Simulated assay, not measured.
Amino acid sequence: MSTPHNAIHLHEGDLPDGLDLGKIVAIDTETMGLNPHRDRLCLVQLSSGDGQAHLVQFIPEHLGGRGYHHCPNLKALLQDASVTKLMHFARFDVAVLQHYLGITLNAIICTKIAARLVYTFTDKHGLAYLSRELLGIEMSKQQQSSDWGSPHLTEEQLRYAASDVLYLHALWEKLEAMLIREGRRELAQDCYEFLPTRAKLDLLGYDVSDIFAHRA
């Protein structure tokens, strides 16, 4: 689907040939749950920050789709070190993408990590909260727990999925300014560069038993 009203473009299995999303791309995912080994990847949302959202839907082969093995354009973008991937709670999204697409991501920025480094006066660092506080944008989370595995997503699901990437560029602009102001931009970058490895540790089962934690 693609209409001027909602600026949402739905693609099955991969991004279209020749699509240029620029050097900073906002990315999010929708899955069947929060366990990458159990809960399959259903949707990848992308935006260049221009009000357009591109949604790549993955439909398993047994449901008549192409599965995860035929998305060269999406994989190329995710592995392109010259393209910055802008995410919120990148730790989860990176783990899911690496697990299902068999790739290693790089050049990542996480607005949740940025918020936790500079928004220390609150324990609220969700995307909806930050968008309201910093951008004055109200985001509905009503579709968050809906069935993303359906081959036929509703208009409400598509609008919800798109909203998770449409405002990340503006949010990052605010948070990066705060990181620089507080002298923590370099520290944030160190955290971002560790994210692909952190995701691999999560996939190995070290998400709860953290190897950095002290154990007697």
Results as ranks from 00 to 15, higher is better:
I8C: 02
H9C: 02
G13R: 04
L19T: 00
V25K: 05
V25M: 03
D28C: 10
T29A: 02
M32G: 02
D39I: 09
V44S: 04
S47T: 12
D50L: 01
Q57L: 09
F58R: 05
F58T: 07
I59P: 00
L63T: 04
R66M: 03
P72L: 05
A76C: 06
D80Y: 09
K85F: 12
H88T: 04
R91A: 11
F92T: 06
D93A: 09
A95W: 06
V96F: 13
Q98C: 03
Y100T: 01
N106W: 05
K112Y: 13
I113R: 10
I113N: 08
A115M: 02
T120R: 11
K124D: 13
G126Y: 06
L127D: 05
S131G: 14
R132C: 10
G136P: 02
M139T: 11
Q144I: 07
S150H: 12
H152A: 13
T154F: 15
E156P: 03
R159H: 14
A162G: 01
S163N: 15
D164F: 06
L166P: 00
Y167T: 03
A170C: 01
L171I: 07
L179R: 01
R181C: 05
R181F: 14
R184K: 15
Q189N: 11
Y192F: 14
Y192Q: 03
F194Q: 11
L195Y: 03
L195N: 02
I211E: 06
F212Q: 06
A216F: 15
